[in-house]
Design a protein around this nucleic acid. Sequence first.
RNA 1: GGAGGGAUGGCCGAGCGGUUGAAGGCAGCGGUCUUGAAAACCGCCAACGGGGCAACCCGUUCGUGGGUUCGAAUCCCACUCCCUCCGCCA
Length: 427
Amino acid sequence: MHDLAAFRKEVDAYARRLAARGFVLDVDRFRELDEARRKKLAEVEELRALRKRESAEIGKLRKAGRDATERQLKVRQIGERISALEAEAKQAEEAFRDFMAGVPNVPHESVPAGGSEADNVELKRWGAPPEFDFEPKAHWDLGPQLGILDLERAAKVARARFAVYWGAGARLERALITFMLDVHTSEHGYTEVLPPFLTNSAALFGTGQLPKFAEDLFKIQDEDLWLVPTAEVPVTNLFAKEILDAASLPVKLCAYTPCFRSEAGSYGKDVRGIIRQHQFQKVELVKFTRPEDSYDELEKLTADAEHILEKLGLPYRRVVLCTADLGFSAAKTYDLEVWLPGQGTFKEISSCSNFEAFQARRASIRMRRAGGKPEFVHTLNGSGLAVGRTWVAIVENFQQKDGSVLIPDALQPYLNAEVLGADGRLW
RNA sequence: GGAGGGAUGGCCGAGCGGUUGAAGGCAGCGGUCUUGAAAACCGCCAACGGGGCAACCCGUUCGUGGGUUCGAAUCCCACUCCCUCCGCCA
């Protein structure tokens, strides 16, 4: 959601910036809806002011023991007109709000212009892709071979695009979650939270998944509850409708949750293996900052996510998304892409964004400086990291010729092992 | 699921249907005092929307949505959430 006063004042500038990300703002429609709404509002308010004055007069008359029947009749008629006008005003307000709710955030000035994801810009690379003296396998071959990944049985108990991890595979997933949370809390200063895995629609509106992207979500039947597509939703909304002390910012939270996505519209993409699943595990980083600090904090948050990859020795690159590839709520996004030898490509493993005040306005997350007025905070979040894809990256990057997988040093204490043997056991 | 109690400003908390946007306290801000700080004392302090260059004016908001009334924080109905007790249960 945008700052209405600013938006109204500079609609054309907003339209230009929105066009850069491929969104066509209907400026005429905006003006029409905005003016209609304000006109109705003014009418209603004028009548309400009149009624207020008249009612007070009646109060005085009656206190003085005088008759006010005539005035009462008159005010009753005003009341009827108010009711009628209120209904119209409400309708105009809703039409306007629906319109605004569908307008995405505008890209930050530092975001490269582009027409598609092909225009995203690589900013850095870390680590060298491993060299193999054999043909490296993809995880969808290696996992089942080791007996640690089972997609057939997952489809039996759920459906396609779910996974069952067995033995060392399950342990590896769990170790990664704990490892990531430990690093973020003890080395990067985040506070761990364990939020609900279901949220209501107000929370999803706050972060921007609703109303536009309902088809990407799983919903509980007959309840106002949805499975979380990312911990961003429950964690960002933790402070919805609150006013934080500016001195307490930035607030840095990290959370593990499973994430549930219907993946409607992604048919044919990443069909093999566990790259794209209806359920996956993720450790998420969320920050609430003062507006002037948010871009510095985005750099730090992204570096925090990168630190996990570096500790695990996984080669990756950082990409800044171009205007066309930006998500609905984001003003700027860095994607971290990990090298996957089985597929010979970099694959997104983390997405770190600054939403500026876009989510804060939708969810009403504010702060107050000493003695000042409430101001909207800036919100940020990023994966730190997607656990399932980290699992894939480890299995594919550290595979040996015999099918065993070397465990990165940083993870060894969590698995109490140095290698995941060709027999699927940890040694 | 059953019975009862509750929801008011950043926080706590009062509030006969008619200058109540709402007492009081805490916190915050400004000042007096002090070498400085604390204490004490004085003053200021809700949010959102609309209008205006501005001073300012108007409206809305006391969990949410309806209703009664000339007029609702205050009365009625429904719902949501929280607390206590009972039942069931990881």
